[in-house]
Amino acid sequence: MRGLLLRLAGSLPALVAVIIVTFVLTRVLPGDTATYFAGPTASAESIAQIRAELGLDRPLPEQFWSYVQALVHGDLGMSLTTGQPVLTDILARLPASAELTLCGLLIGMAIAIPLGIIAAVRQGSLADHACRVIVTAGVSLPVFFTGLLLVYVFYFLLGWSPAPLGRLDAFASPPPAVTGFYLIDAALIGDWETWRGAAAQLILPAVTLGLFALAPIARITRASMLAVLGAEFIRTARASGLSSRTLILTYALRNALLPVVTTLGMVFSFLLGANVLVEKVFAWPGIGSYAVEALIASDGAPVQGFVLTMAILYILLNLAIDLVNRALDPRARHT
């Protein structure tokens, strides 16, 4: 427990750095917020007036100081595009992104981990070659391309999936928010029609992310499994005549999962990045598309809020991975 708190404290400097860098970046980036919002026909006077209202005419350190002060009170500023507090926007959109990313990760893991195990246990077999092809394809195909391809095939050609327009059909109403995850919320109230609708919308973007996540997970699982299968304690287990089930699942896999879990953290952060594009392709109302829109509009506060949210998510994620590692590896509990 103390170790965890220390780790949390250790990530504070990174958080501070993120706050400073995003603040500076949004001020340095080309594009002037006041000009953008004043509109194309605005006079120099009205632009100056908007700039003064937004506080953009004050010196940078002063702006930064008021930004930090607001931040301490949980105020991420106002979005000029939506007219809402950034915190409200992000909290409303985060579950959409989280549901999509987690489903993508789960789909990737569900395919990649068994594939990696089989590829390692039966080296040179068909499964091993399939693993290599899939890994190469997963690495080389960009997500927006796989996303568009899936939409083209499953929506346009086959008509199996609904139009890629958000989390639910336009005429359906979302389930009452408990977790914000439609699949969980709908299941909680037993509304299976909404559940199916949400799942149908979710499946293509989640598969798109899953295909992207698959490659690194499968590769690490295979390599880690191969390394463990060659270890001396596996030889002992074989010499003890343990069944191949016990040998592969209890002895080899649990050890092989340690590096895989660490990799999952990295993959998850890749997915958060890939999310931005996938949300665009599928009109997914997540924080990725929110940030892109704000960036295009030179709307600084949402971008800063987005990056900060990502940084906090990433820190929490690493903490979770630490916890899983401690649960799996008794050696990690002692350090």
Binding site: A231, E232, F233, R235, T236, A237, T250, Y251, R254, N255, L258, L328, D329, P330, R331
Partner: peptide, 9 residues
């Protein structure tokens, strides 16, 4: 030590 499974008691 290497001949025993490191994460199983």
């Amino acid at each position: 030590r290497a001949a025993l499974n490191p994460i199983r008691n």
